[in-house]
Design a protein around this nucleic acid. Sequence first.
DNA 1: CCACCCTATGCAACGAGTTGCAATACCTGT
DNA 2: ACAGGTATTGCAACTCGTTGCATAGGGTGG
Lengths: 176, 176
Amino acid sequence: MALEHALLIALREQPASGLELAKRFERSIGFFWSATHQQIYRVLGRMDGDGWVGVTEVAQVGRPQKKVYAVTALGEEALADWLGRPTHTDGLRSELALKMRGASFGDRGAVLDVVRAHLADHAVRLDHYRQLMKRDYPEPAALSGLDLDHYLVLRGGILTEETWIAWLGEYLEAHA
Amino acid sequence: MALEHALLIALREQPASGLELAKRFERSIGFFWSATHQQIYRVLGRMDGDGWVGVTEVAQVGRPQKKVYAVTALGEEALADWLGRPTHTDGLRSELALKMRGASFGDRGAVLDVVRAHLADHAVRLDHYRQLMKRDYPEPAALSGLDLDHYLVLRGGILTEETWIAWLGEYLEAHA
DNA sequence: CCACCCTATGCAACGAGTTGCAATACCTGT
DNA sequence: ACAGGTATTGCAACTCGTTGCATAGGGTGG
């Protein structure tokens, strides 16, 4: 039930077409809320029907026409309302943790390989986030408003990746 | 596609009925893979049909009969196979992160309240995990096999909660 | 005995998300 | 002109998970 609100946030930051949103979701917003373009199109259609967003067809040079969506007053209201409502704490949901727990019931070496692959993956992500951090927020103390929030969420991404790396490292160490 | 395997792991640790599994999922396993009893019943039915588990009806005193499931050789094979297969790194999926990012578009005070509620919730969980740790694994260095894996996954839960607390703390601090 | 609660199993309907494919517009290379 | 590639939007079918409800056995309190 949150993709709608993720899109509202993205569109308030910057109106965009479905495909542009999909691309943006692969980057910053999608770090903690991913979505495919099909799903985005479907939800945009519903939000248009609900009057949360408005559409403007925009012609482009050398490309097909696109539909740019922007948030309406009704959408702004829905977003503000949602932001203040309490949310259930999201539980973990990790297939890898499952495999780590059940490793005794299979080939442990194979599980350790899976863990190593994830460790490498998280290292890449962490590196990516750190580069974003250095490039976009070299002076965190000076931030406020939207920028400050973006910085803080990126901080969350970094902390999360560091935790994964520490955890998987402990697991590999214990089974070395 | 992983609930089946979560159930296989749980049933290999200890055969159980649907409701017993649901209760166990609320505790240890469900820390990183939750499921309602309805879903568990449905999946157990499918796994029975696939020959991954076998059922024994067990009469109880003062209670309705229950169906105890146990993993078959076929199920063991399916589990061992799954354990060694590579897994996609699971992306975050946090409604709270969304609200933190979009706080500028609503009442920031209300969002901070939501964040504080989550912080308190994570503190409770962390406390719970630490008690489990103290009670069940006072001597981590001595562990091996299944116990070691359970310990390490619980470690992951603790690291995760500590990260949440640190992150949300930073957020509140920055908006103080 | 009747109302109520707990255990245990299960169905049906819905919503969210994924996967695979299709259609259209426009460009480039041959 | 035609083949192939990319951008853009979209449909259909499927799986996964949630919510609400149903059923049935058995206990307990008034």
